[in-house]
């Protein structure tokens, strides 16, 4: 029977402007995590009741540890950033459906934006064959060192031009005339929407990892829904980002809200 497990903070570090990295000792979990899955992190006390869904950035099977990268956006994540090594944290894990890796692709494109970049690190490691990575940041990049260790070309773009190409990832991809057999992506919704159109034009199948505010994280409360196309009714239905996603095929997502 699944349960909420207690993990121990192994390492906590600030790795960028408002960007934090936490390693959790999570025996029995690191082995089972698929790239794109998330953990539901419950802070121990306080006025915030709901766990925080955070994607898994790295799963270290040897150390039985999970790495989560997060931005401090409110009280909950602020409390998380104050947790020290040795302190305990309860998590539900692993949750959701991760990326479906196409082992037959001769070249894969990995496209990330902002806080959508972290889960693509574990993904990049597990994708066999040729791959190209496009990362878009608003300003100073983070996690770049880790991505550059991968056997792939990594292209960086920034909104303010402080690093790499000045512009969006899509503009950068256009400049490079990027192509591949499949796209894996995670990032802010406007980026995913633009990427979805980009992929459709080029007839490249794309998997996108969506984000939505959650409560239970396991598919019961129907809070984190997204619109997914279907043939009957009005042409779409609500699917749960936590349990049916967070990764969906971009062609199935109804982008115009």
């Amino acid at each position: 029977m699944k349960k909420m497990i207690t993990t121990i903070v192994a390492e906590q570090a600030k790795i960028g402007e408002n960007c934090w990295s936490i390693w959790l000792q999570a025996p029995g979990i690191a082995d089972n995590v698929q790239p794109g899955q998330f953990v539901h992190v419950k802070l121990n006390q306080g006025e915030k009741l709901l766990p925080r869904p955070l994607s898994v950035s790295e799963a270290d099977r040897e150390r039985n540890a999970l790495r989560l990268i997060y931005a401090v956006v409110g009280k909950g994540t602020k409390d998380l950033s104050r947790m020290k090594e040795g302190e305990s944290l309860r998590i539900l894990s692993p949750l959701g459906n991760g990326f479906e890796i196409d082992e037959t692709a001769s070249k894969s494109l990995i496209v990330g934006g902002g806080m959508g970049i972290p889960p693509l690190l574990e993904l990049a490691r597990r994708i066999p064959g040729k791959k190209e990575i496009y990362l878009g940041y608003s300003a100073t990049p983070f996690l770049l060192e880790e991505f550059e260790k991968e056997d792939a070309q990594t292209h960086v773009s920034t909104d303010d031009g402080c690093y790499g190409y000045c512009g969006t990832v899509i503009e950068r991809m256009n400049q490079d005339k990027a192509l591949g057999d499949i796209i894996y992506s995670c990032g802010p919704r406007p980026m995913l929407k633009a990427l979805s159109a980009w992929a459709k034009e080029r007839k490249i199948p794309a998997q996108v990892s969506l984000e939505e505010r959650m409560a239970c994280g396991i598919g019961a409360c129907l809070v984190c829904t997204c619109k997914i196309a279907m043939e009957k009714e009005d042409g779409w239905h609500h699917r749960r980002v936590c349990a049916d996603g967070p990764v969906f095929w971009s062609r199935e997502v109804v982008w115009n809200d």
Binding site: K48, L49, G76, E212, R213, L222, V223, C226, H238
Partner: peptide
Amino acid sequence: KGNPTPRVAE
């Protein structure tokens, strides 16, 4: 079908 998201706020 329910309401539009976001459907939850802490």
